[in-house]
């Protein structure tokens, strides 16, 4: 009973936050609201018994992306002009509304075939899950089945994923910069610097 009430309240907060994000123009406030948004969805994941997903959502959504957004904001500071005032309106406003409505209807139609939440007869439970549950511990010696699948059965896949994430992190760090070398104008002997 209280679970349902918490779910409904959190979802209502989520909706309020999304509408506010769409309607606001203050970029800093929007980043702060993004933080609230991911804290709310992480709370929802916890209520839905998915603590590992909530872990990821809180670490990436509320932690790292807030910091990255703020770093971006620091780089583009004083350049925030509302571009949409001058942008030419190529289409009427009801066109995107119709597209969104049709896409939403298609997605809702797609959920009809999905088995119920935690259904034991769902394909995800009957296909390979039984094999992993029975054989993961004797074959790999890892007590946690999810860890056994990620690190042992799909070890090379995980290695590739880690490489992708590492490359992305390095690229982002290069883009947002760290310590920059001081500009040449500040050096004392300007003449030599200009020749070089």
């Amino acid at each position: 009973m209280i679970d349902i009430f918490i779910n409904v309240t959190l979802l209502a907060f989520l909706a309020i936050t999304s509408v506010a994000i769409v309607r606001m123009t203050n970029l800093f406030a929007i980043v702060m609201l993004y933080g609230i948004f991911s804290l709310l969805s992480a709370g929802l994941f916890v209520v839905m018994d998915a603590p590992d997903v909530a872990f990821t959502e809180a670490a990436v959504g509320a932690g790292i992306s807030t910091v990255l957004m703020l770093a971006t904001l620091a780089l583009i500071r004083n350049q925030q002009k509302p571009y949409y005032a001058e942008a030419p309106q190529a289409h009427r406003p009801w066109l995107p509304l119709i597209v969104v409505a049709i896409t939403g209807a298609a997605l809702v139609y797609g959920t009809w075939d999905i088995p119920g939440f935690g259904d034991p007869n769902a394909p995800a439970q009957t296909h390979v899950a039984r094999y992993y549950i029975e054989n993961a511990l004797p074959e790999t010696g890892v007590p946690n089945i999810v860890t056994a699948v990620l690190a042992s059965y799909r070890g090379f896949d995980t290695l590739g994923e880690v490489t992708v994430v590492f490359t992305a992190a390095v690229a982002v760090l290069l883009l947002i910069g760290g310590r920059r070398p001081k500009p040449a104008v500040k050096l004392k002997d300007k003449g030599e610097q200009d020749e070089a």
């Binding site: 702060m32 933080g35 804290l39 992480a42 809180a58 670490a59 509320a62 932690g63 807030t66 910091v67």
Partner: peptide, 13 residues
């Protein structure tokens, strides 16, 4: 973990 992340975010802001 949430408490830690919250702290980092606020310090960054």
């Amino acid at each position: 973990v949430y408490a830690l992340i919250n702290f980092i975010g606020v310090v960054a802001a």
